[in-house]
Amino acid sequence: MEKKYLIYVACGSAAASASLARRRLIDALNARNIDAEIEIHRITELPGQIEARKPDVVIIAAGQTPASIPENILVVKGIPLMTGFGIDKLVDDMLTFLKNKEG
């Protein structure tokens, strides 16, 4: 069985922007038959949440990208998931990174 990825989606208030990004990400992953666990967090809570569960990817839906994310975690700017433009490239690039990391 393929590894189930853990993805964090973050914005300033863990509300609207991250929820929209999460919904579009789920649709894009489903279309590729990829199963992932996607959690929503506030940007300010990211350091603690990353420490707690070590996600594979952190997507910043809105707000300033924190500087303190460990290097082995992929940080993705989530603006395509907000505007709807460039979602396929974002998801394909992310999956390529994850597969290379495993291999």
Binding site: S19, L20, R23, R24, M82, T83, G84
Partner: peptide, 10 residues
């Protein structure tokens, strides 16, 4: 809100 935002940006 999320529904509406998804449809608007759509």
């Amino acid at each position: 809100y999320v529904d509406f935002l998804a449809d608007l940006t759509g």
